[in-house]
């Protein structure tokens, strides 16, 4: 069942087009990777799907969530969607978390807002979510401030916050780019586990093809504001149709090959 569909999405600042004619749909349990380099328009697309475009940018086309077109909807309508139907985790969880509020209360916030839970129920649920994202000693950790926990733990908190209200779509915008590689591997494993458990549709945005390819089943490739390729991961990796996708695969394969324990580093 289609949860989110965007048709002919274009975004412009003044008259300069930044995103042009982007169309795709997310069904329940879909795992879609959106890949592109900086300036490709991938993060703007994500922001548009949450009604969070920066002031001055204009979007056109359709953004249909649960059967209703939200493009151009007033913010009070978007607020009922954000965090409840569609939620997001960003690259740097520190920017998404309030530095002065204990993390448990931040997870509890959306639960009180969207599900009308009272404070103690919401905080109990926050502790349960800390367990689900495998944070150590949840009852104590909920009282910590964001800077008192590690970057990997903050991203776990951000995931708990994003999933606590059981959204139907999770947008993950470079969620592991700021993390060390061993921590990245843990967060990717957690993300895999959580989307399997909850059935949330995933839109995973990244510049890093091997990261996306490990998690997504379908790939969208963006360049200069346009979708240049869309298809099952396997097809895009093995039979890329656009020159750009082919180039991305070749670059990634070259880097991957060199890091592989078998034969890595021997061609220099």
């Amino acid at each position: 069942m289609t949860v989110l569909e965007t048709t002919g999405l274009s975004i412009a600042l003044d008259r300069e087009p930044l995103v042009r004619d982007v169309s795709f749909a997310l069904d329940t349990r879909d795992r879609v990777g959106l890949i592109g380099e900086s300036g490709s328009g991938k993060s703007l697309t994500a922001l548009a799907l949450l009604g969070l475009l920066p002031a001055g940018m204009r979007a056109s086309g359709r953004i249909v969530i649960d059967g209703r077109d939200y493009l151009g909807a007033p913010d009070r309508q978007w607020r009922r969607v954000r965090g409840r139907t569609v939620s997001i985790v960003f690259q740097e969880p520190l920017t998404a978390l309030d530095p002065l509020m204990p993390v448990g209360r931040q997870i509890a916030g959306p639960l009180r807002l969207h599900q009308g839970l009272n404070r103690s129920d919401a905080e109990r649920r926050a502790i349960e979510w800390c367990e689900r994202v495998h944070l150590p000693d949840p009852a104590r950790l909920v009282r910590a401030l964001p800077h008192e926990i590690s970057g990997g733990q903050r991203q776990r908190v951000a995931l708990a916050m994003a999933l606590a209200c059981r959204p139907r779509v999770l947008i993950a915008d470079e969620p592991t780019t700021a993390l060390d590689v061993t921590v990245q591997a843990q967060i990717l494993a957690l993300l895999d586990e959580l989307i399997e458990e909850t059935g949330v549709a995933l839109l995973f945005i990244s510049h890093d093809l091997p990261v996306v390819a490990g998690l997504a089943r379908h790939l969208l490739v963006m360049r200069d504001g346009r979708l240049v390729e869309s298809g099952p991961v396997d097809d895009v990796l093995r039979r890329p149709r656009s020159d750009y996708a082919r180039q991305l695969v070749t670059s990634a394969a070259r880097v991957t090959r060199l890091a592989r324990p078998a034969g890595g580093g021997e061609d220099r």
Binding site: T182, A185, L237, R238, A253, T256, A259, R260, P261
Partner: peptide, 27 residues
């Protein structure tokens, strides 16, 4: 890279996201 001795080095190598093996060999 091929014969890491230290456990941490091994973990570091294992954590590097990889494309499917056959694909990398094809290139």
């Amino acid at each position: 890279l091929t014969r890491p001795v230290d456990g941490y080095t091994r973990a570091l190598l294992a954590a590097i996201p990889q494309l499917p093996t056959d694909l990398v060999e094809e290139q």
